[in-house]
């Protein structure tokens, strides 16, 4: 499907007026995801930004036009697996989908996601990675970039602080589960995202995982009008590469001929404003190392 056809040929399944921050690219991603998946979908939205802005709903109102529910933070994949077992046993084809933040995915919900991936539960699991617990006031997660300010990795007046540890390379961890389909996506590349959701929808022999990189306006200190630009810079600098892994075969979807320095991405974001040149060099070196590893995997 052409991205341009999304509006004319698909149905908007997320209510207008949900209360996401102005310029939130997670809301945009969710709308794209649901347009491609269509109404024959059961949607799990665990506690997090999209739960908080009303996608599941408040009181007697819902923010979605499909069956939608709050799984627990630590059990989205297992609850979906149970739903899928029910419909599979009846021979009914239904998309059973999680749209979960990185806290629910790489931290609290990792065990059940890993279990579902290993067992081959036929669910679609989409993680919106905004690098921390952005809904509850910007706390760190296992997916927060090294050096970043968060409310639980504060920075003092001398500019010392920030997260001390590396970001968990979660797409790679999911790829190593040997699931039929793993892909990364980015709200600045909607056509690429559409292609990947369509592929995930076709998978019928196991779990499909999509990891969307979503810079957070409010929690990271990004200007609303630069929401998409910052997301794009993460790809152009190889900081958050676009790639997919189909049945064990790695493929780069974007291979920038002249990648931009990571610094260009970092300096648009307030949570990195205290980083020294040395810190930035370290993140550049780390980005290069991971990129080369990915290129090697894609050349196999």
């Amino acid at each position: 499907m052409k991205a341009i056809d999304l509006v004319s040929k698909t149905e908007e399944l997320i209510s207008p007026g949900i209360s996401a921050c102005v310029g939130c690219n997670v809301e945009l991603s969710l709308r794209v995801v649901m347009r491609v998946l269509g109404p024959n979908t059961i949607l799990a939205v665990p506690p997090g930004c999209m739960g908080g802005v009303g996608v599941v709903g408040w009181d007697m109102k819902s923010g979605a036009k499909v069956p939608v529910f709050f799984p627990l933070l630590d059990n989205p994949a297992s609850m979906l697996a149970g739903i899928k077992l029910h419909y599979d046993r009846l021979g009914e084809d239904v998309n059973v989908v999680a749209f979960a933040g990185d806290g629910a995915t790489v931290d609290a919900g990792f065990q059940c996601l890993s279990g579902a991936a290993e067992r081959g539960d036929k669910i679609i699991y989409i993680c919106y990675d905004n690098e921390g617990y952005m809904n509850t006031g910007y706390q760190r997660s296992g997916s927060t970039t090294k050096g970043a300010w968060t409310s639980t990795t504060p920075v003092n007046k001398e500019g010392i602080g920030g997260k001390m540890q590396n970001k968990k390379d979660f797409p790679m961890i999911m790829a190593m589960h040997d699931i039929p389909y793993m892909a990364t996506a980015n709200p600045a590349y909607v056509q690429d995202m559409v292609n990947k959701i369509e592929k995930a929808k076709q998978v019928d022999n196991g779990l499909a995982y999509i990891h969307i990189f979503n810079p957070c306006i409010t929690g990271w200190g990004v200007k609303s009008e630069e929401s998409i630009e910052v997301a794009r810079l993460a790809v152009q600098s190889n900081f958050a590469p676009l790639y997919e892994v189909e049945n064990g075969n790695f493929k780069l979807n974007m291979n920038p001929r002249n990648p931009k320095p990571v610094k260009e991405y970092l300096q648009k974001i307030k949570k990195f404003s205290h980083l020294t040149d040395e810190d930035i060099e370290e993140l550049q070196a780390d980005t290069d190392k991971k990129w080369n590893r990915l290129v090697n995997l894609a050349s196999l």
Binding site: P39, N40, T41, I42, G51, G54, V56, G57, W58, D59, M60, K61, S62, G63, A64, K65, V66, P67, V68, F69, F70, V94
Partner: peptide
């Protein structure tokens, strides 16, 4: 999906 329902809104 034939009869959408929101389970456990806030």
């Amino acid at each position: 999906p034939k009869k959408p329902m929101a389970v456990d809104p806030l």
